[in-house]
């Protein structure tokens, strides 16, 4: 059961967005997030919403998967909305005891909530349409310029992909250790928080020991297969830009220009 776990939240289907080079998607997501902080008026948000809707439509991922991503931040949205709505000083519209709604409050609360929603949805488009593997590849190649300032890009990407490979194995191991401890009378079901925390110790200690042992074995196996860092390594699946990737970059650029134009020129 645990073996079937999908990592990240990749939604497998065929679409233009799925086929795009991961670097384009990374840059696109980054640009989209930046744009959200550039726009300052309703038309800007309309453009951002239309762009996002277009990308979601192109990706053929059901919208409910995007909404699912929002569930995790519902509380954050509520708190941000609440505080901005009631505690922004300005022209009062309505008040009850200590709570006052101001015109400025409504504006900041709406922009804040919209910004957060677009941010999460925008980045889930990337994670939903790119396999974790592809994403680490894209990061390694796309961030390759960081090597110049001594950032170990290859090593970080390798660590990420190994971590992804071992998550299901370690989950399974956790399950096994848990059952073994339950068989010896451990109580993982307790409602008491302190008891619950204490029960984790006999779970985590063996898990860590075994993780280190695995790491040691894996390092040995990698060395035995001539792994010696990123230098002189070739790629089985190299990332090569295609025409559609150029088109992708163009669309992103166009979108950014429009956002800046709206932010600078049109004042409401």
């Amino acid at each position: 059961m645990i073996r079937d776990i999908t990592l990240g939240q990749y939604y497998s289907t065929e679409s233009v967005i799925h086929r795009l080079d991961p670097r384009v998607k990374l840059v696109g997501t980054l640009c989209y997030i930046i744009s959200l902080f550039l726009i300052k008026n309703p038309i800007g948000y309309l453009v951002a919403a239309i762009f996002l809707a277009m990308v979601i439509w192109l990706s053929r991922v059901p919208v409910k998967f995007m909404i699912r991503g929002l569930k995790a931040i519902v509380l954050l949205l509520l708190i941000a909305g609440f505080f901005n709505l009631f505690f922004t000083p300005g022209e009062p519209l309505w008040s009850w005891k200590a709570l006052t709604i101001t015109k400025e409050g409504i504006v900041t609360a709406t922009t804040m909530v919209l910004r957060l929603m677009f941010l999460i949805m925008g980045s889930s488009v990337m994670t939903l349409t790119t396999t974790p593997n592809n994403l680490t590849d894209g990061m390694e190649k796309g961030l390759g310029f960081l090597k110049l300032i001594k950032v170990p890009v290859h090593e970080i990407a390798m660590m990420m992909s190994i971590a992804l490979r071992f998550i299901p194995i370690l989950l399974e191991e956790t399950d096994k250790i848990m059952k073994a401890q339950i068989a010896r009378g451990a109580d993982f079901e307790s409602k008491n928080l302190i008891k619950k925390a204490k029960a984790l110790v006999p779970l985590l200690v063996p898990l860590f020991v075994s993780a280190f042992r695995r790491a040691n074995d894996l390092a040995l196996a990698m060395e035995a297969r001539c792994y010696r860092g990123g230098e002189g390594r070739t790629k089985m699946k190299p990332l090569i830009y295609k025409k559609r990737d150029a088109a992708g970059y163009l669309v992103i650029l166009l979108y950014l220009v429009v956002c800046i134009y709206i932010g600078r020129v049109i004042k409401l």
Partner: peptide
């Protein structure tokens, strides 16, 4: 090596 899980690197 002995342990099949600990020597497979690719996903």
């Amino acid at each position: 090596f002995q342990n099949p899980d600990n020597q497979i690197i690719g996903q």
